[in-house]
């Protein structure tokens, strides 16, 4: 049952991100291009998502547990540390150059775009390398 729910959630998420324009690198870049061809559309993507998620999360967390699991798995870490801020700054550089973020890349690959495939392979490499270095340093 959890598999079917997750599959549906993935399809809904992917359809949403494709419809919203977040899978189009040109649209992503234009959202951030305040000094040029500004396209504010992506503010509405985040707005629409938060409008649904924020009140729903608030109500959901009043329940003792989720419908199909033992507990809510929510990060407990409250520290604003260097990896968080440094990592976010690094992510922004890559997002700015390519217009692709991790949530958009699989739906973009699904459209058959070869540039998206290339980005994804590189992203997985970057993820694995970072995980490897971090696990060795602990």
């Amino acid at each position: 049952m959890t598999i079917i729910i997750s599959l549906i959630a993935g399809i809904v998420f992917g359809s949403g991100i494709l419809i919203s324009g977040m899978t189009n690198p040109a649209k992503v870049q234009n959202f951030f291009d305040l000094a040029g061809t500004w396209d504010p559309s992506l503010a509405f993507v985040m707005g629409g998502a938060l409008l649904i998620t924020a009140p729903s999360y608030y109500l959901l967390f009043k329940m003792n547990k989720p419908l199909l699991a033992d507990k809510f798995n929510v990060p407990e870490n409250k520290n604003i540390d260097t990896p968080l801020i440094g990592g976010a700054a690094i992510f922004g550089i890559g997002w700015g150059i390519t217009g692709y973020c991790p949530g958009a890349i699989l739906p973009a690959i699904g459209t058959g775009n070869s540039g998206a495939v290339l980005f994804c392979v590189a992203m997985l490499t970057g993820m694995m390398a970072t995980r490897l270095i971090r696990s060795n340093s602990h």
């Binding site: 550089i93 890559g94 997002w95």
Partner: peptide
């Protein structure tokens, strides 16, 4: 696209999250 992909992979792993 390759360089940007690597940068995104490193960044989101360090910051434990993305968009």
């Amino acid at each position: 696209l390759i360089a940007g992909g690597i940068i995104v992979g490193v960044g989101v792993t360090l910051s434990s999250g993305c968009t």
